[in-house]
Design a protein around this nucleic acid. Sequence first.
DNA 1: GAAGAAGCTGAGAACGCTATCATGCTCCGC
DNA 2: GCGGAGCATGATAGCGTTCTCAGCTTCTTC
Lengths: 329, 329
Amino acid sequence: MTVTVRDVARAAGVSQATAARVLGEYGYASDEARVRVHASATELGYTPNGVARALVSRATQTIGLVVGDIENPFFAAVARGLSDVVEPQGYTVLLTNADEDPERERRAMLALRSRRVDGMVVVPAPGAGREAFRDGPPLVQLDRSVRGAATDAVMVHNAAGAGSAVDHLLALGHTRIGMVTDSPQISSSAERIAGYRRALRAKGLLDESLISVGGSSQADGLVAARALLDRPDRPTAIFTANNFMTHGALLAARELRLRIPRDLALVGFDDLDWTTLVDPPLTVVSQPVGDLGRVAGERLLARIGGEDGPPRRVRLATRLIVRGSCGAL
Amino acid sequence: MTVTVRDVARAAGVSQATAARVLGEYGYASDEARVRVHASATELGYTPNGVARALVSRATQTIGLVVGDIENPFFAAVARGLSDVVEPQGYTVLLTNADEDPERERRAMLALRSRRVDGMVVVPAPGAGREAFRDGPPLVQLDRSVRGAATDAVMVHNAAGAGSAVDHLLALGHTRIGMVTDSPQISSSAERIAGYRRALRAKGLLDESLISVGGSSQADGLVAARALLDRPDRPTAIFTANNFMTHGALLAARELRLRIPRDLALVGFDDLDWTTLVDPPLTVVSQPVGDLGRVAGERLLARIGGEDGPPRRVRLATRLIVRGSCGAL
DNA sequence: GAAGAAGCTGAGAACGCTATCATGCTCCGC
DNA sequence: GCGGAGCATGATAGCGTTCTCAGCTTCTTC
């Protein structure tokens, strides 16, 4: 069915080896052979078979990406950044959603492995064990890192970012600041909790009961935020540790008819398209989402290119963007 | 480096053929051979080489997806739906962003082809020619369809959807209804424009100058919406044909201090997370985004499975969700 | 003019798998 | 006891590339 080098060779009246040489651009070939081979290649519509090539070259020119859910704008931005860096180098991205489930993640990584990806970028699911990261192709962890997994990792300064959010609220005079977060099994969430704790403890204002743990969906965020806001002594400000929690907190505030920022100040982690569209616009700790993917891609390409040495952990800076949801403007 | 069937065979003390049979689960093998092969396979950590398998079976168990930009929530939802349907069948999705550029799209499809994907789902870029869709693996077009490209296609009832939006505005008494749309080179946009025209013409209210053509970004949407709202005889209602245009129109309205729905009624095409978060919540024509991807996946799997017959075009229904942005509530 | 270098070519061996085939072997029924 | 069915096994031929190697021709150099 499909046309092979052999077919092209036959049509051009040369040996398979010669045709392969001109098509593969290596070794010698006379000008005459060259033009004839190219002519019959285009005439027959020859497309090199990447599978066969991958088998002998032991490189599939393919990068695996394992995220929780591509519908999460954070992961979508990461995917975009990754492919932007990697495609110009001839790589294509194999995408899989693991839905924050370690078992699905394990299976996805296995599937990518048997497809012989040249490398993979993984956002580890909560509870993922380090074994999964032991051997296999070059791998970089993104956004989170599994304890004991000796791979490159690209993350943001979570603790500092959370600290900047809390400090902002403290500076505005808040003394009861709650936090709505994803599971602390996720290293980035754990770090954000740590940053929150440290900032409050420094002022002697830490109250553990004001930390509400949700999950990885808006619904979870709503429930967790409601738990905090339903209390008689509800906090006057809330720091939400990811975009689902932010969304949930907004829903909860509306449900309880709390006006922002008058009744409740809000700072979210991770900026989104719509944060400037709501009223008031949201103050957030913005992460360089595209850069996360891009840097992960660069790390990976370097490793694929043979870079050696101990695992490298890269941390990118976050930035507090003050808008209206804390009453600072 | 990596362990092959041959290594497993050697370790188990059987021939390569026998080992291949038990690992590949075909043909005969004694129970003894079976256990020994499996034992040494797990001991050595054997992972089947999908590349080699693909070469002989002529199936990569891989589906290509070409979208404009995975950061667009619409495409992200499509990707999610597709992979949800396709992964349980053992397929993995190769993702590429073509940025609505026919040339990049062409190259992406070529790359997917040389990777020998078993099928592909493509959201054609504006201006894409039918040639690209002529031969190659099974292909389904999504959201849009290229004139003369004889492939399966999965789309929504664009004209009817646009009509329902306009009818809603008409029923509320609006007589000057503008439209902000993406390029009519995109078939779905063209159909939405057609639906808009038909609904207005039926009432004798069609004014071509109220159609403002933007592009594929928020910025374009803002500019196009502003062009409409800056006029002294500005429309009292606007129908936006995709989520970027909706976002842009919201920005333009804010810029001009127009109150929604008092000064301006708004209906968008495509529902999004944040449409219920803005004030007032947005009335939209919602599309079954996940289903688009799922149905495309099912179509594709059917074709890969050998389904024959003329190209099939599937149309999914849209649904008007009335919220507050038209003053209907 | 001989020796060597350089240019060009085809044969053929991998890569790691699937799958066919021929060859034994055991067991059954008649 | 014997033919045939059924089971088990190893050899071996691809899949479509990449790439080495040997052989041949042509050009260079002293």
